[in-house]
Design a protein around this nucleic acid. Sequence first.
DNA 1: AATAAGCAGATTATCAGACAATCTGTCAAT
DNA 2: ATTGACAGATTGTCTGATAATCTGCTTATT
Lengths: 229, 229
Amino acid sequence: MGDMDLQIARQSATLRTQVEDKLRQAISSGRFKPGQRLVERELCESIGVGRTSIREALRQLEAEGLITSYPHRGPVVSTITYEEAAQLYSVRALLESYAGKEFAENGTAQDIHTLNEAVAEFAAAAANGGGSRLIKAKTAFYDCLMQGSGNVFVKQMLTSLHNRVTLLRMTSMTQPGRLNHSVEEIREIAAAITDRNGPKAAAACKYHIDMAAKVALDYLRKTSENDGD
Amino acid sequence: MGDMDLQIARQSATLRTQVEDKLRQAISSGRFKPGQRLVERELCESIGVGRTSIREALRQLEAEGLITSYPHRGPVVSTITYEEAAQLYSVRALLESYAGKEFAENGTAQDIHTLNEAVAEFAAAAANGGGSRLIKAKTAFYDCLMQGSGNVFVKQMLTSLHNRVTLLRMTSMTQPGRLNHSVEEIREIAAAITDRNGPKAAAACKYHIDMAAKVALDYLRKTSENDGD
DNA sequence: AATAAGCAGATTATCAGACAATCTGTCAAT
DNA sequence: ATTGACAGATTGTCTGATAATCTGCTTATT
């Protein structure tokens, strides 16, 4: 009984934290779209908390880059240019490759086991086509990957980057044919890690992100050609 | 008259922002030490603003990792373990290498010029021994390096990491003999970038951080042996 | 004496209300 | 068409109040 987890859910640390989560989810689900203004009073009413909690939560999201606020004009859901999107994917590739390498070389057997389960679940979700299940599975996979890297800073930065990818409002997974490739690429990553092959894991991670980036950026380029109206 | 800068200083965006800066500086200057509690009301009095501004600034610093707050107990200046310090330097090496490589391959001639000026100023400051001048020079160098990388995410992450390094409360620059090496390493970086040699720039950056890490971690290991009292 | 229970003080979390500062859009004046 | 003034909207900030929670100390229990 070495490490039984006795923590309880700690239901609701603080109101502010819950507001943060709500806002984060509203943004990544697309309910709040990039460029949209977020008016304090409206948020107070729709969420049902005072301005204090709203404002503090907004500061947090601002620091995470999800919103941008201008003095005396208030916050706006961040927009991300094509150029920035490309930069985002570059850093992701860099950090995830590193995470994969570290995982392969130093991860625990337990972590590897969890990773392979996550991959299996992702593949199953892909086969079944359950949208929300798919997102959950992919999230679980990445959580495990970052966890296994053993580096809290990498984990934190990648989490932030993942959140920001949602600002692009397009999951590369929805591109036709992309999903199957994605499953295959993730299998490669897990296989390399299971093999304890650091360089190969890094390469697989990089390949995965580069492919996702290509699809996403192509799409962005196409659609941004006619958004000047 | 291509790019004359007409911006005025925009003296004081918001009070909150000034508070953030004050707190950040208080932490990195060591006036607030790691582990120290930060009591709201005391901060209000010493800085002379209301709780609103203080609390919102604290949320920002929390997101940056400079402070850690526990529900209903308030914030404390973050502490950083040996393990985490090692991880921090690893990520820094990764990101700065990337920045150096990108700079070398894609930076503008103007950026390169600025970088070399920053190196010269750093060397001069090192020769003169002016402590605050040295810090300012090094900051300028890094600002330039991150700027030249052309990646806003890298820039943001490295800024955050640099701020957190100060939590270790020891500038590797103060180690005897280290400073001269440091100057030399930085010259190498600038030289590689000026040569447009990406891989060499990356290697030089990595070497520089690895050396700094070695000094810092050795020091930490030594002093942490007898801090159990 | 060691432990458990409970109380009091301190501090945070959150709300409500107020007021000044600033931004934005509109409409009149030149 | 450009400028200037004005009104409405919204944020930035302060103050005061109350509930919730943490911490340490006192007291009761075994």
